[in-house]
Simulated scan of single mutants.
Amino acid sequence: MRTCLALDLKNDPVLIEQYEHLHRPGHMWPEIPQGIREGGIVDMQIYRIGNHLFMIIETPDNLTVSEAFQRIGKLLRQAEWATFIGQFQQRLPEAQPGEHWAEMKAVFSLQEHITE
């Protein structure tokens, strides 16, 4: 299952560069990508334009992103990372209560329009 989420970075070029640096190979705490996998996430990608972030997450069909995040949050250093990396981020006004990354609504899928 694919889920897309959105979040903003604080609009500060220095913080944005630090955020990107921390997400490059070799700069993220090794427990973080390991924990993401242990939580059940198959793939995760983050894209940026300006100070806007878009995260694409792939999970097995029997696992929601919310369930995966709950699992991940209980693993070594994950909560510490979330607090640390939170200094660079700001929630979107559209985020629901208790939601850090706001879940995006799918509005188009090419697959649904192909009738072969």
Rank of each mutant, 00 (worst) to 15 (best):
N11A: 14
L15D: 08
R24A: 11
G50A: 01
Y19F: 09
W29V: 05
H23V: 00
G35H: 12
G50F: 03
I32R: 04
R71K: 15
M55E: 03
D12P: 04
T59G: 05
M55Q: 07
L63A: 08
V65T: 09
P30R: 13
G40A: 06
P60G: 02
A68C: 01
P25C: 02
A68I: 05
R71L: 09
G39T: 11
L63M: 05
F54C: 14
E67H: 11
F54S: 12
S66N: 09
S66K: 13
L63D: 11
P60A: 02
I16Q: 14
L15V: 00
I16R: 09
P25N: 05
H21L: 06
E31V: 01
I32T: 06
G26N: 05
T64P: 03
Y47I: 00
I16K: 08
A6V: 07
I36V: 15
L63S: 06
R71W: 12
D43L: 10
R24Q: 15
A68K: 01
G40C: 12
E20C: 13
M55K: 05
T64S: 15
Q45M: 08
D43T: 14
Y19Q: 01
D8E: 13
T64L: 03
G26T: 03
R37K: 15
G40Y: 07
L63P: 12
E58N: 07
L22P: 04
Q70Y: 09
G26I: 00
L63F: 08
M55R: 02
G50M: 03
I46F: 00
E17L: 03
Y19A: 01
A68F: 08
H23T: 05
R71A: 12
P60C: 02
E31H: 12
